[in-house]
Simulated scan of single mutants.
Amino acid sequence: MVERSAVTGGCLSALLVVLSAPGALAQGSQVPAASVPRQEDAPSRVIPPLHTFYRVGVAARVNPMGLFTNLSFQVRHRLYESPSPALKDNFIGVGPVAFVSPAFVRGGIGVEFQPLSVLQLSASYEGTRWFGNFNYLQSFPSPNADASDRRLAELGDAGTSYVSSGTLLTLAAMLQFKVGPIAVRSNPRFFRFDLRLRDGDRVFYEPVLDAVVPNGGWVASNDADLLYLAGRLTVGLRYSATGSFFRPQDYPAGEMDIGLNPTTHRVGPFLAYTFHDEADRLFNAPTLVLISQWFLSHRYRTGVEVSQALPWIALAFQFKGIP
């Protein structure tokens, strides 16, 4: 399934975050953790309590296909000093975030609060602009409407894609633990989209999450990882779930939820290679990430339109630094 409708407008629903410290991640622009917990023996310099930090990532995926760049810059303040591995990586940070795709662009402000090495809370608020190309934006009067890749391509060819703008609010958390070479983490995220849709439309297809989502409502997503750290190489398993919270007002009068949009479930291997991790470098922790997952549940990708044997595959390159 290589529909043109899903090519450059689509973006990874589960990829590409760069650590600012062991276990830290950025939650802006709908991008969950794909980074690797830092090794205990990674070199470390004395970083002042108040400092700047940046992260950059580029990524591509298939099923559906997508391409994007994710960027952020922060001013960070370390909350307190501690030699304990469970406490020493703490900070509060604020700064601009951006998410760029050939089909749309987002940008705004993000806040990250990490009181402990194992826990991070974050929020971002972004303005978004859809360009009306690559068969996007497509919106519908009901969640029950057909939003398959084939149908999106047909609608795009018919000229129904349109320019729009709006906002995105993202709330997220990250909980992770590491014992020896084994790391476990969970990364729940909640999204609220508010776009200017066509008159009569209540929902739209969101290519980053690969889901039909309610306008002015909420969508939830979570990635859970079990990882083994072997030096520069990290291998493991990722389970992902995404679901929309549709409300009665999201359906036309007389229509109801008939179960056409189940929660999406995927599972598969996670592989990452970090070339170096030295905190005193401006260009630090360059990492290649490969994730391949098979759909356990999806309206179209478990045999209805796309064979369940075809995996969701994402490849990314990411790096970070402290200027």
Rank of each mutant, 00 (worst) to 15 (best):
R189M: 14
V212G: 07
G216S: 06
Q249K: 06
G217K: 09
L155V: 04
T167I: 10
Y205I: 08
Q176L: 09
A173G: 11
G159N: 09
L171D: 05
P207K: 12
S221Q: 11
A173H: 09
A158P: 10
V219F: 09
R247A: 13
F191E: 00
F193S: 01
F190V: 03
Q249T: 05
L233C: 11
R232A: 11
G156I: 00
V235K: 13
R238D: 01
T242M: 13
L195F: 07
Y205K: 11
L226V: 08
L227A: 14
L237T: 10
A220S: 15
L169A: 14
G243R: 08
G231R: 10
V213A: 08
Y205F: 15
E206D: 06
L195H: 08
S164K: 01
E154P: 01
R202S: 05
Y228L: 12
F246T: 00
A172N: 02
D225F: 01
A224V: 13
A158D: 15
E206A: 04
V203M: 04
P252N: 04
F245P: 13
G231F: 06
S221D: 13
Y162Q: 09
G159V: 02
G180M: 10
M256E: 11
F245C: 09
P188E: 00
P248I: 02
E154H: 02
M256F: 08
D194E: 10
L226K: 07
F245G: 14
D194Y: 12
S186L: 14
R202A: 05
E206F: 07
F204I: 09
S161D: 04
F193R: 03
L209P: 04
A253C: 01
A172D: 00
K178Y: 12
G254T: 08
V179S: 15
E154L: 06
P207A: 10
R202N: 10
Y205W: 14
F191K: 01
V213G: 06
R196A: 13
A172P: 08
G166F: 11
T234S: 15
A220Q: 15
Y162S: 08
L155A: 02
Y228R: 06
G254V: 11
D201V: 02
G236K: 04
T234I: 07
S165R: 11
V163S: 11
L233A: 13
A172M: 06
V203F: 01
D210L: 07
G180A: 09
V208C: 11
V219L: 07
R196S: 15
F204E: 11
P207W: 02
V203C: 04
M174I: 05
S221G: 15
G166T: 03
F190N: 07
E154K: 03
A241E: 04
A241I: 01
T170Q: 02
W218E: 13
